[in-house]
Amino acid sequence: MSVLVFVENHAGQFKKAAYEAASYAVQLAAQMQTTAAAVVLGTVAEDTVRSLGKYGIQKVVCVQDALLDGFEAHAAAKAVAEVAKGIGAGVVVLSNTYTGKALAPRLAVKLQAALAAGAVELPELNGQDLMVKRTVFSNKGFADLALKTAVKVISITPNSYKLVENEVAIEVENRNGVVSAADFKAKVVEVKKVTGKIPLTEAELVVSAGRGLKGPENWHMVENLANALGAATACSKPVSDMHWRPHDEHVGQTGITIKPNLYIAIGISGAIQHLAGVSGSKVIVAINTDKDAPFFKIADYGIVGDAFEVLPKLNEAITKFKAAN
């Protein structure tokens, strides 16, 4: 029973989350004393496909049907399930991105497989079962989930698993004619990519602000700091509810859950719902005028001070640091 990883591409490119899934699959295969293969859908240049060898993928099946260039869950699930059955995969791994979230449930039903969505660590083997650690209660807790079926599907939370380099020779098999137009149940009319901005779900560094900024007209200070750092911008729920910032910047229990390497919270008190969405961050810096703000309880570094005083100074210090490094 080998391990198959679905490596998602965006316009022919693999993002970090895709390599994380590949690396995770290779480590899991090693634990299970088997091999890991990858499946890639649509048009991807061969050099890009071969880059998976750097993380230990020995075989890639490229389903090259041009119809698969735009992601559609129904057709993608058919193609991945066919490859999985063909190689006798015991575990299918994918990223818990929006693409993975659409694909994994369908795939699990097709393969009659148990699904662990949002794994944060490598599983433990327990007889025929896999024990997978995932977050529950919107990051307020963890659960060890036993996957009890013969075939299993695991989607992994981006930025929770460290890439392991392990260069191997890679074999590429190209296939065609796996899907037909009838498999595509939804038609993509338009794709609006966010440009000139780091997508929050992919960001390793995030600068976030709350009501302490007093109004949308002051957000240039947050954006300047984010630009200096190369970070994405985020905000608290009240800020998006008041339409100071777009909804897609709202992090928290009912917004986006993120786990960047660095989260800088400016003028956010730290309500339990907000903390749930960001507590997975590796390092948290809180800046708040109130020394009793709940954010300081989960922060690694804190400055008690006014955002309007601290932000320009911090921006200056970061700019100086970036120039020197």
Binding site: V136, D144, A146
Partner: peptide, 15 residues
């Protein structure tokens, strides 16, 4: 039959 079962819960490690 159930596909999955939670065997144990844990709280995040304290900072």
């Amino acid at each position: 039959a159930l596909h999955t079962e939670v065997s144990e819960y844990a709280l995040p490690a304290a900072k």
